[in-house]
Amino acid sequence: MNTETGKTALITGASSGIGQELAKLFAQDGYNLVLVARSDDTLNRLADVFRSNYGTQQITVIGKDLSQENSAQEVYDEVKRQGITVNYLVNDAGLSTYGKFATETDWEKETELIHLNVVTFTHLTKLFLKDMVARNEGRVLNLSSLVAVVPFPLQTVYAATKAYIYSFTLSMNNELKDTNVTMTALMPNATDTDFFNKAGAADTVITDSLQDPVMVARDGYKAFLKGESKVIPGGAKNKMYEIMGYVAPPEMTGAMMRYNNERKDSEAVKKQQKTIAWTIGVAAGVVVSVAALLAAYNNTNAIDRARYRYKAKSAGRSAKNALASVTDSLNGTYHDVKSKVEEALA
Rank of each mutant, 00 (worst) to 15 (best):
T182S: 11
N189Q: 15
T184M: 03
N197F: 13
K126F: 14
S229H: 02
E110S: 06
G63T: 08
K340T: 14
L35T: 08
T56N: 03
S144M: 01
A284I: 04
L225M: 15
S71W: 08
S171T: 09
D328E: 13
V34C: 11
T111E: 15
V133F: 11
V341I: 15
Y98A: 00
Q58I: 07
M256E: 08
K239T: 10
A217G: 11
V34H: 07
F195R: 02
I280G: 11
E78F: 01
G254K: 04
T333L: 12
H115D: 13
F168P: 07
L146W: 02
G13P: 08
V34K: 04
L154D: 06
N32F: 04
N142S: 09
N53D: 14
K64V: 01
D29S: 08
D208K: 10
V287Q: 06
A27C: 12
T300K: 15
S339Y: 08
V341S: 15
Y158H: 00
S52Y: 01
F128W: 02
K7V: 07
F50K: 03
L176V: 05
R309W: 12
S52F: 00
F224V: 14
K274D: 15
G235I: 03
L10A: 06
A284W: 00
T5L: 13
R81C: 01
E175I: 03
G245N: 06
I114E: 07
G227L: 01
T120N: 11
G285A: 09
Y297V: 01
D304Q: 15
V133Y: 10
D219N: 11
V286F: 07
E78N: 02
E343Q: 13
V337N: 08
M132T: 10
A185E: 03
N70K: 14
V157N: 05
D41P: 05
L323K: 05
A248V: 01
R38E: 09
L66I: 04
G235Q: 10
K338V: 09
I18D: 09
E137D: 09
V181I: 08
D106H: 01
A37G: 15
V326L: 09
G99V: 01
Y297P: 05
N117I: 00
T161Q: 03
V34G: 10
R263A: 06
K7M: 12
F195K: 03
D29Y: 03
A37E: 05
M257P: 04
L113H: 04
G227I: 02
Q273L: 12
H123P: 12
F168Q: 05
G220L: 02
V247P: 13
K311F: 15
N321T: 12
L35I: 13
A201R: 00
D194R: 14
A159H: 04
G55A: 03
T56Y: 01
R135D: 12
N2W: 07
L22H: 04
Y334S: 10
M187G: 04
S71Q: 11
E251K: 09
Y54T: 10
I62V: 07
S209A: 14
A72N: 06
S144I: 00
V36C: 02
Q273E: 15
A319F: 14
K237Q: 12
I280M: 11
S71V: 07
F152Q: 03
T156E: 10
